[in-house]
């Protein structure tokens, strides 16, 4: 009889250890990547690393500026495409669409969330690149191979559709029905109710969804790597090639141990990526927790 309780106690502690272990991964990551990037941080000045635009690992020059700027460009283009489309679709799904439509659309969007990024990348190469090369770039009078920021942005934008739509729909559903009724009862149309009351109430949640989408796009590697062109220069227009941080890390892991400081530089790139994504995620999750609390 006693054994049952001992077993219960033992497993309780074991389970708690599992939790401690899981959560400690974040700290282990920060610590491990920091230790590995120490050499470059000690040998180079802050401005050499973050403000310089020259990337010549063989000459020992590691300027991150082109990569940071490239990441931002691609992510911003992706968000410009994704935000309006996702927001409108989420409003449609949660407020207007008939049940028959949502029953079909929601699983479809879930399905897309599961498609691997390499597949998105292949699609980018097969469909988006020719589209930009043959139609969009000539339209603006630019000669382009198709590879570049715009291609990366389009592919990434489509990749973040599911996450932004899913969270936005959840946020809209957490807005109490009574709030809508209060506005409708005053004679507001459905759209006025959404515009003036529902969207306002849902604003923090929408922001969180956007931040999460942004950070997903920010860290996405393979799909972007395949379509942005990977040229380590600061881009000047959306038809230029770029070289985002994740692509830099993925592309050069093979040779990084043979060039001094190269591995340290790539680990620093990972650390920067991790820190930024952590900040975005923590902010967004805190907002979502507050949203959830305020509706309970």
């Amino acid at each position: 009889m006693k054994f049952r309780f001992l077993k219960d106690k033992f497993f309780k502690h074991l389970m708690f250890m599992c939790i401690v272990f899981s959560i400690s991964i974040v700290f282990l990551m920060l610590f491990g990547l920091f230790i590995r990037s120490l050499p470059i941080l000690q040998q180079k000045s802050f401005s050499d690393i973050f403000l310089s635009g020259t990337w010549h690992p063989l000459r020992g020059e590691f300027g991150f500026a082109p990569f940071i700027v490239g990441t931002l460009w691609v992510t911003v283009v992706a968000m410009v495409i994704a935000i309006p489309l996702c927001l409108l679709t989420a409003i449609y799904l949660s407020e207007y669409a008939h049940r028959r439509v949502t029953v079909f659309l929601k699983p479809f969007i879930d399905l897309l969330a599961g498609i691997p990024s390499v597949v998105y990348g292949i699609w980018g190469v097969l469909a988006v690149i020719p589209l930009i090369r043959d139609y969009i770039a000539p339209l603006f009078g630019v000669r382009s191979t198709g590879y570049g920021i715009l291609a990366g942005g389009i592919v990434l934008g489509i990749m973040v559709f599911p996450i932004i739509i899913q969270i936005c729909v959840e946020v809209f559903q957490s807005v109490p029905k009574e709030l809508r009724e209060a506005s409708l009862a005053l004679g507001a149309t459905k759209w006025q109710t959404i515009k003036h009351s529902v969207l306002r109430k849902a604003l923090p949640g929408i922001l969180a969804a956007i931040v999460l989408g942004f950070s997903r796009a920010f860290g996405e590697t393979m799909a972007v790597l395949m379509v942005v062109g990977n040229v380590p220069k600061i881009p000047k227009s959306i038809f230029d090639c770029a070289y985002p941080l994740p692509a830099l890390i993925a592309n050069n892991y093979g040779e990084m141990l043979s060039v001094p400081l190269y591995d340290s530089a790539l680990m620093l790139a990972s650390l920067i990526l991790l820190l930024l994504v952590l900040i975005f995620n923590i902010l967004a999750r805190l907002i979502l927790i507050r949203v959830e609390r305020s509706t309970q």
Binding site: S22, V26, M29, L33, S215, R216, G219, A250, V277, N281
Partner: peptide, 16 residues
Amino acid sequence: SFDVLWGIPSIVYGAF
């Protein structure tokens, strides 16, 4: 914490 872990890009897991 698990939600935050979820958000970390896979390339960072790889580097780690």
